[in-house]
Nucleic acid binder design. Structure first.
Lengths: 345, 345
DNA sequence: ATATATTCGGTAAACGTTTTCCATGGAATA
DNA sequence: TATTCCATGGAAAACGTTTACCGAATATAT
């Protein structure tokens, strides 16, 4: 028992052709009612499972999407992922998540799922498509369905062979401007900033917004108050130490992600610095721990649920050649003011 | 230009047989040096990409593993994932992560990647294999390579057709006993507990350990101090409120996961209850935020890195029919004592 | 020198599907 | 009754690989 059970065996067992089996299962009204029922019953009873490899090979469709995430354990990404999966499932697609850990090599390995025809499209969260340069250049490279998110060059959009890649993002410049303005409104004139990798679009954009807000308020921006981190708790801690060492301390710190803000606040408190009375702290992302930190964290809420959903929908529309309204989706963010920047009266 | 480019076209272009192309690329010493080099050069130049669908169909190997995670955004799971991916990559496998959101239906959908031959094995974090009951029963069902983790019935282990499923886990009973003992040592006699879904192995085991520790200390365990949560921050908050309403308040709360502990502490503080002076709080998992909460959280550290790694290694050993030393891996945990249970003197 | 082993490349059969094309028979139409 | 049409099911080609098998050529041993 328990031998191979393919469409062939099923057909033999029913004494019909494999064509009929295939039709009864996947093209039911191409076949008589009687046949349909007999086959489906037998399939269920014997536990026939379609070999989707063979099926995909034949049809050139997989109903799989690969999503390449720089860090699955990042609390912000994690939020996006859920709704992405959800939306895809509703349309009959499965999402395969790949954790690239920010490494190009890994991105490319997951990108190969596309080239190897194991997935119909790809969503990527880094600023470059998950294919080697040489591949992108190659004449024989046809641009697969893809959607870029989170790390997006809004202005230009990423282009391959003149084709610009659809994206889903928020307006980082505006968001950053808003939160900086909020700090300025609170009376801060000397604002330090803890960044992530400065070569990434998100950091560039957030920095730009931060600087613009200061200029508009007539505050001179000092690059000596820019501290380069990497979006982790630890870098928040470490750089907070550096900031505390400054002769002329800032009165506020804008961290470009919540995790850094949490690390930062922790170090400040450890050193007896009160937040927000002595130094105010703002974050970015509104991860779910932001409202449970002490003090609760002022931050920019990204519409995580919507980001994920729109990524999936956009990509699937492209895969299925639906007419696409917007290839460039910019979603609204929201400034959330909490205790870490609001001096209690 | 940019037409189909398969092995066939490549062979044509070089005026050799497709067999030679295949060999030159994947079985290099089955072919002369000259041939090898010519083919590889051409492949690179023209940008040939193997259709892995076809390859897998032929060889019945995919070098893919699917890992089904109940919630990718859970901070604890997230830690495991990374090392899992890492270890797999070292052995030449890619891991496809599926987020089941705890839904059976979704688990099964990802399980189908196995049955559809798109993956060679599966790692699952829930207590039941990702296949429908009827499938498991079916005569024609052959048990695929799988490894169970995190939600494991240690005693029996899960069995399919007499075959017991390999697992990787910690000893939840012991861990829970230890942390409860710690609370008892701190002088607590009335300890509330905030659980997760009580039907899961982890909760059952942690509850068992919790009760045993009390019995050993001669404390009577009161089921009225058991509060059923769901491993989220929110349930921690909510149940903390319930606990505060008790006429006879406990002096300590053991939360079966850190996220709940964080929610719990937040509510306590909101209500002017000092942690740990008025009520001590302990968690479980040692997520990375545990040491940044205020107060920092006493908890059980699970060896996340090792859990992930061992899952991958064990599964791949099974896939590749390596001789397997241990089919049941129980890893060491560690009690981490922090401020939330240590009364400052 | 011959006999034997080894290396190398091609032919064609598989892997498990889906789908085009065709043949058949019965129902519908004229 | 003769003709057309449609519903149904089978045969076989195709999807893009890998690999068993063969035969030719070359190297090695006697």
């Amino acid at each position: 028992m328990s031998n191979k059970l393919g469409i062939k065996e099923l057909a033999q067992h029913l004494d019909i052709s494999i064509a009929s089996v295939s039709r009864a299962l996947h093209n039911p009204n191409r076949v008589s009612k009687d046949m349909r029922e007999r086959v489906q019953a037998a399939a269920k009873e014997l536990g026939y499972k379609q070999n989707t490899l063979a099926s995909s090979l034949r049809t050139a469709k997989t109903r799989n999407i690969v999503a390449i995430i720089p860090d699955l354990s990042d609390t912000f990404n994690a939020g996006v992922i859920r709704s992405m999966e959800d939306a895809a499932a509703k349309r009959g697609y499965s999402i395969l998540f790949g954790d690239s850990q920010g490494e190009r090599e890994r991105e490319i390995r997951y990108g190969e799922l596309i080239q190897g025809k194991r997935a119909d499209g790809v969503i990527f969260f880094s600023s470059t498509p998950p294919f080697p340069e040489e591949t992108l250049q190659s004449d024989n490279f046809t641009v697969p369905p893809m959607v870029n998110s989170c790390e997006v060059m809004i202005d230009s959009g990423y282009k391959i062979k003149g084709q610009s890649i659809p994206y889903v993002t928020i307006n980082n410049i505006e968001a950053s401007k808003e939160i900086t303005e909020h700090l300025i409104q609170q009376g801060h004139k000397r604002i330090a900033v803890i960044t992530g990798d400065p070569s990434t679009p998100s950091v560039k954009q957030r920095l730009q917004g931060h600087i613009e807000a200061q200029q508009m308020a007539g505050i001179e921006h000092s690059s000596s108050l820019v501290f380069e981190g990497d979006y982790t708790i630890e870098s928040g801690q470490k750089l907070a130490h550096d900031i505390l060492k400054l002769k002329h301390r800032p009165t506020a710190i804008f961290c470009m992600c919540d995790e850094s803000a949490i690390g930062c606040m922790h170090t400040l408190k450890e050193n007896g610095v009160r937040v927000p009375q002595d130094i105010a702290v703002a974050g970015f992302d509104d991860i779910r721990f932001a409202q449970f930190s002490t003090p609760t964290l002022t931050t920019i809420a990204q519409p995580v649920e919507e980001i994920g959903r729109r990524c999936s929908e956009l990509l699937i529309d492209i895969i299925e050649n639906k007419s696409i309204k917007e290839k460039r989706v910019v979603l609204p963010h929201k400034l959330v003011i909490r205790e870490s920047t609001r001096i209690p009266n």
